[in-house]
Amino acid sequence: MRKAAAFLSWIALVAAGPVSAHEGHQHKVMGTVVQVHVDPGKASHVEVKTTDGKTVVLSCDDKTQFVKGKAAAALRDVAAGMRVVATTKEEGKTIRAVEVQLGEMDAAKPAADHHRH
């Protein structure tokens, strides 16, 4: 009886639902913050110049985790010139930051540039 129930449930489990879009893999972005755009009520953005010279715009929302060392941090702790390592996920054309590790200020970079809209 249990085997029959398990088999019927298996049929129900596998034989349903259309194929959906492919969700992106997670990637690492390592670089220095160029600008922080804070837009209350909407996703904020952190512009990062990566170690290989590219510019990447990270979208941050309330699910994005910020960490400084072993302590929790927040978007307000991010400043231009700060070194960061972000774990990101591509969602369409958007690069969403899942976690951002905050590091030291890069000596070669200008001081903070925090934009609020």
């Binding site: 690492k28 390592m30 590790q101 590091g103």
Partner: peptide, 19 residues
């Protein structure tokens, strides 16, 4: 990543791989 965050030099091949 740890070295970079602490202000150290970047390794020749940065870990921009698929996490």
């Amino acid at each position: 990543e740890r070295r970079f965050l602490e202000g150290g030099d970047v390794a020749p091949a940065p870990p921009s791989s698929d996490a």
